[in-house]
Design a protein around this nucleic acid. Structure first.
Lengths: 106, 106
DNA sequence: GCCACTACTACGTATTACGTAGTATCGTAT
DNA sequence: ATACGATACTACGTAATACGTAGTAGTGGC
């Protein structure tokens, strides 16, 4: 029975995936590795592939040439737009929050 | 029957609440208003109060003097630490993502 | 030929998000 | 005085996600 860990994360898997693909097309496993390197967040296969499927349904990512061992995806134009919006909102929010906390930097 | 809207948000309600309290103590309704002003994200009561209850259980927020009409909360020291960590991670992530997207600024 | 790493699929449970409805108080304009 | 919108929550049910485990299979090195 799956037990949940810490909770109160700061980014949803969907966004982590989109951001990972901003780098260029990747297949699932490569996304996991990339996300882990960048954020220390480990996405299990259940989380990862389910999220990718939803992103595809919504037209934010699209599959590439189907190798039957790897399943690469790319960001769609809409995916780029959405990602850009969300990242900007995040950046603004983080800055405001840190200011409110009275943090030294910005 | 509750219908879900857009999905692929960029921040969890829990984090929005913590950030709102970084400003100073607030009660639930005031948090909703503040979050909406800052982020355009509208937290319904179901989402809001459930999230607050979880944050309290986890010791990230604490209730203040119980007026029986308003229920104010403040950030705990642990809540501040957690918030600070998450916001820094978010900021780093957003910057990296925007860079990957080839955005003009940082 | 074994074993670790790569890459997924399938499945079930735990958590969370979200909307609606309902209750009650307060302020203020009529 | 009273009607009405804004304030402030509680209660409840459903929908959507997150997450972990197990299982399957190919690949590369030693």
């Amino acid at each position: 029975m799956p037990r949940q860990r810490d909770r109160v994360g700061w980014a949803e898997p969907a966004l982590l995936i989109l951001a990972s693909l901003a780098d260029g097309p990747k297949h699932g496993y490569a996304i996991t590795k990339d996300v882990e390197e960048q954020t220390s967040i480990r996405l299990g296969p259940g989380t990862l592939y389910a999220a990718i499927a939803r992103l595809e349904e919504r037209g934010l990512v699209a599959p590439l040439d189907e190798d039957e061992r790897r399943r690469p995806y790319r960001l769609t134009a809409q995916g780029q737009t959405v990602l850009d919006d969300k990242l900007r909102a995040m950046a603004r929010f983080a800055r405001t929050g840190l200011t409110r906390l009275g943090v030294a930097n910005a």
